[in-house]
C-alpha cells in the first residue's frame, strides 16, 4: 500500500538520519539529572554503620582531593574504588588504617572525642557544601563539580600531596596517549592520556585489575560497559568528570549533546 510504504520509508530515513548525526548518536545515553556541583563525588559509606546503630558516613571527594591525590587513598591506604566494599571499621581506624591514617585526633579530628563522631557519621550528602564556594576560583568545567581538576592541578592552583608515607619513586614517566577507536563510524575516536591520570593515580590503581591487555579488554571497552561502571566508568560518572562531558574523551566531537548541566541548590 503506498501510504504504508511511505510511512516505513519515512521511519527508515529518520532512523538513518539519527544514526548519521553525531550529536544524535552521542545523545542517546540516558544521563539522569545531575547532582548539584557541591554534591558530585560525595558518597555515603554504609557498609556496617546502620547495622551498628550509627548514621552512614558522608564522604566528600572534592574536599579530600585538594589535600591528597587519588594515589594516597586508593593505593597507599587501600580504599577500594567501589563504595561499601572496603572493610573499614572503628578498630582499623584507631589502628591508623584507612581514614585513621590522617584522622587520628592529632592533626585532624579522629575517634578521640564523642562530639566528633557526627562530623562523619551524619548521613548527609550535603555536609560541607558551605565550603564549596571558594572553589569557584578554579578552572571551569561543564559538568560534575563544574571544576576542571586536572587543569587546576597543572596550573598549580591546587597542590594535593602525592604521598602519605610512601614516597613515589618519581614522576611516572609513562605519559603516552592511547587512541581508542569508536565502534560507530560517525563518532570520533576517544583519546586516553596516561599523563593526566598518572598525576593523580599509581599504575597499580588501574593495572592489571581494571585494564588488562592480556585479556584484550579493548574488545569489550564500550560505552555500555563504561556506563555500567566498568573500566573508565569506575571513576568517571562517579567522582571524576562525568560521561556527559563527551568532548573530554572525544575531543573531535562536533556539536555538543544537550545533557542537563548541574546547578547549585
Amino acid at each position: 500500500m503506498p501510504h504504508q510504504a511511505g510511512a516505513v520509508t519515512r521511519g527508515a530515513i529518520t532512523v538513518a538520519l539519527l544514526l548519521l548525526s553525531p550529536a544524535g548518536a552521542s545523545g542517546n545515553f540516558a544521563f539522569t539529572n545531575p547532582p548539584p556541583p557541591e554534591e558530585y563525588g560525595n558518597l555515603l559509606i554504609n557498609r556496617a554503620s546502620a547495622a551498628a546503630g550509627v548514621k552512614p558516613v558522608s564522604f566528600s571527594h572534592w574536599i579530600h582531593r585538594q589535600r591528597h591525590t587519588c594515589r594516597v587513598c586508593h593505593f597507599e591506604l587501600q580504599f577500594n574504588f567501589e563504595a561499601n566494599t572496603t572493610e573499614i571499621t572503628e578498630d582499623a581506624n584507631r589502628a591508623g588504617m584507612f581514614c585513621g591514617a590522617c584522622h587520628d585526633g592529632k592533626d585532624l579530628f579522629g575517634h578521640t572525642k564523642p562530639e566528633d563522631c557526627e562530623r562523619c557519621h551524619n548521613g548527609d550528602l550535603r555536609r560541607g557544601s558551605e565550603r564549596f564556594g571558594p572553589l569557584w576560583r578554579l578552572p571551569e568545567a561543564r559538568y560534575g563539580n563544574r571544576i576542571d581538576w586536572s587543569t587546576a592541578l597543572d596550573d598549580g592552583l591546587i597542590a594535593p600531596a602525592k604521598k602519605l608515607t610512601i614516597d613515589p619513586s618519581g614522576e611516572i614517566g609513562f605519559a603516552s596517549t592511547i587512541l581508542l577507536e569508536a565502534e560507530w563510524p560517525m563518532v570520533p575516536n576517544a583519546m586516553f592520556p596516561h599523563g593526566q591520570h598518572t598525576r593523580w593515580l599509581d599504575c597499580n590503581d588501574c593495572h592489571p585489575n581494571i585494564f588488562n591487555i592480556k585479556k584484550k579488554f579493548t574488545a569489550g571497552l564500550r560505552m555500555e560497559g563504561i556506563m555500567a561502571r566498568q573500566f573508565c566508568g569506575i571513576c568517571h560518572n562517579t567522582v571524576a568528570f562525568p560521561l556527559s562531558d563527551c568532548r573530554r574523551c572525544h575531543p573531535d566531537l562536533k556539536g555538543l549533546p544537550e545533557y542537563p548541566e548541574p546547578v547549585s541548590r
Partner: peptide, 30 residues
C-alpha cells in the same frame, strides 16, 4: 603482539600555563 592492543600516540605538548583546556561555560553564581 596483541592484535587488539590500542595504538599509542606521542605524548601531548605541554600546555602553556594559564590556558584553559576546555571551553569555559558560564556557571551559575554560587
Amino acid at each position: 603482539g596483541d592484535a587488539a592492543a590500542p595504538a599509542q600516540l606521542p605524548p601531548p605538548e605541554p600546555r602553556p600555563q594559564g590556558t584553559e583546556a576546555t571551553a569555559p561555560e558560564s556557571r551559575p553564581a554560587p
